[in-house]
Design a protein around this nucleic acid. Structure first.
Lengths: 208, 208
DNA sequence: GTCTGAATAGAACGTTCGTTCTAGAAGGCG
DNA sequence: CGCCTTCTAGAACGAACGTTCTATTCAGAC
């Protein structure tokens, strides 16, 4: 024995984490904060470990690698996005109502998982194949859902567009862009922003 | 003298650059390509130098630092964006026509400087204060132009919105998002995409 | 009580990073 | 020609990076 205090924390003081989080949970939470603010390349594992005042060994113990940590965050959150969007459509048949429900569900998830969704939007960092592939896969599946719903609208004569794909990108644009500029602690409420976005998607500048 | 081939290239072969670009111009072009694809943090100066098969010393000779190279690209391109947008409005008085001209000008610049504008949109890389400040400054000035024009529309009773700021963000969303997904060499023409975007901004899903 | 495995610390490794330093080659000018 | 500035190469440096390794402590099973 040399010195220091390795091994489990002394039980009396809740050591590494704020609150009652386990080390693993604290790592996920802290990594999420850093990744969503500074991206994958912009965040070092020492940043994360130092913020929690623990050793970097913990990251390798729990997640194997830096990318494993990224994928673990994706796993418990963002990965479910396509399914959650599909679920919002289950009981609805009217095409316009379906799209409205889809957008609302998307905005709701955005509000509750702003940082997680920001992570997959910063795709210009290059992580190794598996990581970037997981990101792209989720984005593709979400895009496919929107295209499918818009195509139904178009065939029903409810919208007139030359290209549903461009339309889908435009809708995703306003939803995803909001992740960049909206501040939950700012002057605007999430409900207010969501209402404006929905209005813009369905009627553009001209309002309702 | 040891070996190798330092000094100016042998005049017969146009050495470092493809085509007739000077070393400085070739560096700007190559750096632009890397920065727009992989961001500031994701691009190393050795990436850039190796792609041109020259030494990293050139970057320090011409630009002083990695960030100086970034700022030089901004200087000769993106920095003029706010002015170019203002110029598009000079002869127009009708508020709706002004906004239309603004959007068209913005899309035109986007088409000719897609990579440059992408650079300032990847703001999640953290470069030192001066660099990130220049980025934010440009984005703020563009936002201010849109807000000013939308406010004029609102006061003229031509649009009904609860918040022109959100509206401005929504318009910037579709314009900037297009930088991410549009591929000039893809199946869609720029004109086609621009027309759809304008239609979406002014009328949303419902089309014209 | 002893053993085993999970959890943690801290040093160390090899690589890559941005940058600096030293020096050589070419061009312009007298 | 000789001189000075510009341009270029390449080695080297210190810091930071992701990762590995070794060692230690605690909790629980027996």
């Amino acid at each position: 024995m040399v010195s220091g205090r390795p091994g489990r924390p002394a039980a009396s003081v809740s050591y590494p984490a704020e609150d009652g989080l386990s080390s693993r949970e604290a790592l996920l939470e802290t990594a999420l904060q850093f990744f969503s603010e500074r991206g994958f390349k912009g965040t070092s594992i020492r940043d994360i470990a130092n913020a929690l005042e623990i050793s970097v060994s913990n990251i390798y113990h729990y997640f194997g690698s830096k990318e494993g940590l990224w994928l673990a965050i994706m796993e418990y959150s963002v990965k479910s996005l396509p399914l959650r969007l599909e679920n919002s459509l289950l009981a609805i048949t009217d095409p316009l109502e379906r799209l409205h429900a889809l957008v609302m569900a998307h905005l709701t998830v955005s509000a509750s998982q702003q940082r997680e969704l920001k992570m997959i939007m910063l795709d210009h960092d290059r992580m190794s194949a598996a990581g970037v592939q997981a990101n792209l896969d989720i984005q593709r599946r979400v895009l496919a859902i929107y295209i499918r719903e818009l195509e139904a609208l178009r065939q029903g004569g409810l919208i007139s567009t030359g290209n549903v794909r461009i339309l889908a990108f435009n809708i995703l644009a306003v939803i995803n862009w909001q992740l960049r500029w909206f501040r939950p602690d700012g002057p605007l409420s999430a409900a207010e922003v969501h209402a404006e976005i929905v209005k813009f998607i369905f009627h553009g500048l001209s309002g309702k």
